[in-house]
Design a protein around this nucleic acid. Structure first.
Length: 271
DNA sequence: AACGAAACCTGCGCGC
DNA sequence: TGCGCGCAGGTTTCGT
């Protein structure tokens, strides 16, 4: 489900509902998604206050006084806030009991999501966050240009690499490359400095507008926290195969890049 | 070292 | 109706 705008939407709603509450207990129904020892995991969290909720790229970070709970939603992770005695539904893998007699529930159909614990000192200089680079909002164009120069993989693949730049996923990268008129199979090292500036600017525009509209909802009935995004009305290419390009009227094509479904206008985006 | 493929999981829609 | 396949907003690991 989530790219940067969707995770940011989750962060905002969680902040509104959770700041200041204590975590009283935790039930873990799928241990594999906890990357550290589960006893240690519980020890670190129980009776801690949720003091802040942060985000870097697509990674959610719960600040619990002196310790940090990292949560990556991967493809389908979602959070819900429910009453204490509501039924435990299928795919609810972690349930946090809160001090206001509500529960925070982590729901993940495909079980790809992961959680781990970090101290303040380790938060940003150990994995996973040590592998998450700058977001488009604060990346330097010379740095990005130099990084792209060193890689021969398709530009789309490299932009999806969170250690190069963070925040873009399969939907927004297609939209950004369309707006920049760059074919996703263009070799990363062939991207010019002016392309890079365009990529950064269009990424900022797309992500900001997507945040404003609370993300994109496609092929997904249940949204996180009862919030469903509305950015899908602005998509130019993603999921639009066989439809007319908004700019030139030719037919949007679906191709495969790095194993990922990829939508392009074959006229606007020449190789 | 770098690239693509497979793996991790479940569910849905499609064609036969 | 049932089965097999391909696909899904992500990332890591395993081969060549």
């Amino acid at each position: 489900m989530p790219e940067l705008p969707e995770v940011e939407t989750v962060r905002t709603v969680l902040k509104e509902n959770l700041i200041g509450l204590y975590i009283k207990d935790i039930s873990i129904y799928y241990e594999k998604m906890i990357l550290c020892d589960t006893t240690y995991f519980k020890e670190c969290i129980i009776n801690k206050k949720i003091t802040n909720i942060l985000r870097k790229g697509k990674v959610l970070i719960f600040e619990l006084e002196d310790i940090y709970l990292i949560s990556h939603l991967r493809m389908e992770g979602k959070y819900f806030i429910k009453d204490l005695n509501d039924m435990v539904e299928k795919h609810e893998h972690i349930i946090f009991k809160l001090s206001n007699d509500k529960t925070l529930r982590y729901h993940d159909t495909r079980k790809f999501g992961v959680m781990c614990i970090k101290t303040k000192d380790d938060l940003y200089n150990t994995p996973p966050l040590s592998n998450v680079s700058f977001e488009p909002f604060d990346i330097n164009s010379d740095y990005l240009y130099k990084t792209l120069q060193t890689k021969k993989a398709p530009i789309k693949t490299v932009l999806l690499d969170q250690s190069v730049m963070s925040g873009l996923g399969n939907i927004y990268v297609d939209e950004v490359l369309f707006l920049c008129k760059i074919h996703p199979l263009t070799k990363s090292c062939d991207i010019t400095i002016s392309n890079v500036e365009d990529i950064i600017n269009k990424s900022i525009e797309v992500l900001n507008k997507a945040i404003e509209f609370k993300g994109t909802t496609i092929r997904s009935y249940t949204s996180s926290l009862g919030v469903s995004g509305n950015y899908q009305q602005f998509l130019n290419v993603h999921t639009k195969d066989m439809q007319k390009c908004n700019v030139c009227g030719s037919i949007i094509q679906k191709i495969k890049v790095g194993g990922r479904g990829t939508y392009i206008c074959p006229i606007c985006q020449k190789l």
